[in-house]
Amino acid sequence: MKIYTLHSKQSLPITLDTAWEFLSGPANLKTITPDYMGFNILSGADRPMYPGQIIQYIVTPVMGIKTKWVTEITHVKHKEYFVDEQRFGPYALWHHKHFIKEIPGGVEMEDIVDYKLPMGILGQIVHPFLVKPKLNEIFEYRKNKLIELFGEYKP
């Protein structure tokens, strides 16, 4: 069983309050997801984030194939971190930790995603040329979109 990890950090020139309000708002995920993914929230994003919250989405990650994705917000520590875990969807495991901390002149956001692909060895074979590049592309899009929305951090 191979478990992969994606790790991303980004600093933004905004307050902790602003960062938390935006990043912990489930509806804002659509804003920082590439349009081609056809991201659409079906339910669960109608209130601020809380432990036990179930959010249902439709995404089109590859080749125009629509996929239902159901996540649960399992942990929330106000203005520090939250964790979402896939309950149903394209991965055999998806555990995404979002950390936010104040730094001089802004905030640092850190994402750590532990994930496992389905289909055993076939999943491992497609990981380096299909899944990993797609995830890197999505997180790069998010990074650029957050800069567009909030500005570039200059220490």
Rank of each mutant, 00 (worst) to 15 (best):
H98I: 09
T15I: 09
N40H: 14
P61G: 02
G64M: 10
Y36D: 14
P13L: 08
V59E: 06
H127P: 00
I112T: 08
E102W: 12
I147H: 15
K132M: 08
D46K: 06
Y115C: 02
M49G: 07
Y153L: 05
H127G: 05
P128D: 00
Y4R: 14
H96A: 06
H78C: 08
T18E: 15
F150T: 05
L146S: 07
V107S: 07
A19C: 11
I73N: 10
D17V: 08
N40Q: 12
I147Q: 12
T67G: 01
L146D: 06
F150C: 09
T18F: 11
F139G: 00
P61Q: 03
E21P: 01
T15V: 11
K79T: 10
Y50H: 13
K68G: 14
G105C: 05
I112K: 03
G44P: 01
P133Q: 06
T60V: 14
H127C: 10
D17G: 09
I147F: 15
A19L: 04
I54L: 11
P104M: 08
A92T: 11
V107P: 03
S8F: 13
K9I: 15
S8D: 12
S43M: 07
K77H: 13
K77V: 14
L16H: 03
L16T: 08
G52M: 00
G106D: 03
H127R: 12
G25R: 15
E72V: 11
F129G: 02
V83H: 09
Y141R: 01
G105R: 03
I73D: 06
H96K: 08
I103K: 06
N28I: 10
N136K: 13
L16C: 10
V70P: 04
Y57E: 07
P118L: 03
N28P: 06
Y57A: 02
I147S: 05
N144G: 05
K77Y: 10
E110M: 08
P118S: 09
K30T: 09
Y81K: 05
E80I: 06
V83W: 11
N40P: 00
I3P: 04
M119K: 02
R142M: 07
T18W: 14
I41L: 01
L122R: 08
A27Y: 14
L16Q: 04
T5I: 13
G25H: 11
I41K: 02
G105N: 04
E102R: 14
